[in-house]
């Protein structure tokens, strides 16, 4: 038990250091960006008609004249005290903006994560177990096709087919247009999340299925499966008794590693579907030089991804007898 606590503690410290690094990297990239916050947010024309005083005021608001290091340290100091600052674009506390958007995205990502995980695992096991059959070829062909298709392109295809041609699903946003917030139902939200979630899932499935298939083939070629056959176990029994058991560990790793891919995919997908989630907001914050918001989003999403990895490591300790028994003895 003590062993596990030390392990978890070490992981948490590492995670904090990584978050620090990530936020610094995001900050440096943003200060190196050639975008002028005034020009992008106020507009060239409007800027031309303003007085020097007004411009100076705006410059102060966007923090153009502060030295970069001072801006970063200021942000970091507040963040450590639990204050993520105020979004320059939305004029709301960053934590509030993120909270709202994350809620929208979480629906999407959680669905895609669970769905692509389960479907990918199933397809991968089936394909690996029936290697070189037409079913395997079909699954593999489909996965290769999907994983070589850019996410935004897939999103556009689905959009055209379901929203434009068939007209059965909405083409964007997370709620119906022209309906006030109070009367939006859960059904409305789900209905609007279907297309983006589907796009995200389809891309996720391919990767998980292909990797699971490789693992399954390795397992079926292992010595212990040969011995199970020598002992008269049927193919079904071998897959159920040995295949599933041994594919579980790599599946956990794959599943939690896919969180970061789903996050990345959501940025593009939300953009295509004008879905007001975290990904879309991150793009806005980046293009609009909204430093506090961008740093906030970066840190929160990095924390979720690292948190996923941490959970995977902890689950490993529960599932893998080598770690479990090793820990019990220590």
């Amino acid at each position: 038990m003590k062993h596990r606590l030390i392990f978890t503690g070490k992981k948490l410290i590492r995670m904090a250091l990584l978050l620090l690094g990530v936020s610094l990297a995001a900050f440096l990239l943003m200060s190196a960006s050639p975008l002028d916050p005034l020009q992008t947010n106020v507009g060239q024309a409007a800027l031309g008609t303003m007085s020097q005083e007004q411009i100076a005021k705006l410059e102060e608001y966007w923090g153009v004249n502060d030295p970069p290091l001072q801006r970063y340290l200021g942000w970091l100091g507040d963040f450590v005290r639990g204050d993520m600052g105020t979004s320059l674009l939305y004029r709301q506390p960053v934590s509030q903006v993120i909270g709202q958007r994350l809620q929208n995205s979480l629906w999407l990502m959680a669905f895609a994560w669970v769905f692509s995980g389960l479907l990918g695992l199933t397809l991968g096991i089936l394909a690996g177990a029936s290697r070189e059959s037409w079913g395997d070829k079909l699954i593999r062909g489909w996965c290769l096709l999907i994983s070589s298709t850019p996410t935004f392109w897939l999103a556009l295809v689905l959009l055209i087919v379901f929203a434009v041609w068939l007209g059965v699903l909405p083409s964007g946003l997370s709620v119906p247009i022209g309906v006030d917030a109070a009367s939006v139902t859960l059904g409305d939200r789900l209905y609007h999340a279907i297309l983006p979630a589907l796009t995200l899932s389809i891309t996720g499935v391919a990767n998980i299925a292909l990797h699971t298939r490789e693992k399954m083939i390795d397992i079926l070629e292992s010595d212990y499966v040969l011995f199970a056959r020598a002992r008269g176990e049927s193919k079904t029994s071998i897959i159920l008794r040995h295949g599933l058991r041994n594919v579980a560990l790599p599946a956990i790793t794959l599943q939690f590693a896919s969180i970061s891919e789903i996050f990345g995919g959501s940025v593009l997908v939300e953009q295509v579907f004008s879905y007001p989630g975290l990904g879309q907001t991150a793009v806005n914050a980046g293009l609009g030089s909204d430093l506090p918001l961008l740093l906030g989003i970066t840190v929160v999403s990095a924390a979720i991804v690292f948190g996923g990895n941490l959970i995977a490591d902890l689950l490993y300790g529960v599932v893998d007898p080598k770690i479990r028994r090793g820990a019990a003895r220590a």
Partner: peptide, 17 residues
């Protein structure tokens, strides 16, 4: 597995999990 049985070469022939 019943009439004809195999004693394999090593521990890798046992399911590690």
């Amino acid at each position: 597995g019943r009439e004809i049985v195999l004693v394999p070469q090593g521990v890798t022939y046992l399911d590690p999990l």
